[in-house]
């Protein structure tokens, strides 16, 4: 039995005055190492909130009302997941890095957070940078986010995820703000790393092109619930629900050659 991460019956609600507005309504998901699970749906369906809810980093006024996360059948507190069990890649990496700190600072603190900071941190960071294709890793270390391109930053973010050596990876719209060529390269990189490092990936996206390219399985979300789950092949060949069909058709009309 491979290592698993399970989100079980997650409910998230936003407080509006005296009553709650339900954002995530009983979502359950299981990630397995070496498998890529795509969580798809239109924007606002609750897929990103599921991801931050599981890790306990919801914005003020929004909270988890029910549910838990299990790592190999043991319940884990959300704050113990972060960095240690789950590494995260966000969209729009430019604003995700602290503007006044360098890549070296980010790498160091990432390692320290998971108690892996030692005298060797520099060479390990350089190695991770090289792995994600940041050329001349040495010269990247002293850079700040504003001195780097979007593609470089997304790679740096993936490198930080690798540094923490977590078995699972949440990738929240990892290619949304990048231009097409860079998108393709980042997707290839994610694919390769997930396979080689045997990561369990939760890929959050609204882009079925990304799904077709990377995912093994797909869960479709609508209005805070998972309405359909199947293998990627089945989702594209035989979508059951209207929302799924719409997502697939919208994609097909854009890229007929992919199918």
């Amino acid at each position: 039995m491979s290592e698993t991460l399970t989100i079980e019956n997650l409910h998230v609600a936003a407080q509006h005055g005296h009553h709650d507005h339900v954002l995530v309504d009983g979502v359950s998901l299981t990630l397995r190492r070496g498998r890529i699970l795509a969580l798809v749906g239109a924007s606002g369906c609750g897929k990103s909130i599921t991801c931050s809810g599981a890790q306990g980093v919801l914005p003020p006024g929004v909270r988890v009302t029910q549910g838990r996360v299990l790592h190999n059948d043991t319940t884990v507190a959300p704050e113990r997941l972060r960095g240690r069990v789950v590494a995260t890649i966000l969209q729009n990496p430019r604003s995700a890095f602290n503007p006044i700190r360098t890549m070296a600072d980010h790498a160091r603190e990432t390692l320290r957070a998971v108690e892996r900071l030692d005298g060797d941190w520099r060479s390990r960071t350089l190695e991770a940078f090289a792995t994600v294709g940041l050329e001349d890793a040495e010269s990247v270390l002293p850079l700040h986010a504003f001195e780097m391109s979007g593609g470089m930053l997304q790679r740096a973010m993936i490198a930080l995820a690798l540094l923490s050596d977590a078995p699972f990876l949440f990738a929240d719209e990892p290619t949304t703000d990048l231009d097409l060529i860079v998108q393709a390269r980042i997707l290839d990189l994610l694919d390769e790393l997930a396979r080689r490092r045997n990561l369990g990936v939760l890929l959050i996206t609204h882009d079925m092109g990304v799904v077709a390219r990377l995912a093994d399985e797909v869960a479709v979300m609508e209005n805070g619930r998972i309405i359909e789950r199947a293998t990627t092949r089945e989702i594209f060949d035989n979508p059951q629900r209207i929302a799924t069909r719409e997502l697939v058709e919208a994609h097909m009309s854009l890229y007929p050659e992919v199918a």
Binding site: V57, G83, L90, N92, A96, F97, R101, R112, A113, L160
Partner: peptide, 23 residues
């Protein structure tokens, strides 16, 4: 505190005090 880099720092597993101090 509501900036995205703070969220990212927390997601990387940094503790509350560390996030407050450095980010």
């Amino acid at each position: 505190a509501s900036a995205r880099h703070v969220l990212y720092a927390r997601l990387r597993g940094l503790g509350d005090r560390q996030v407050e101090r450095s980010h």
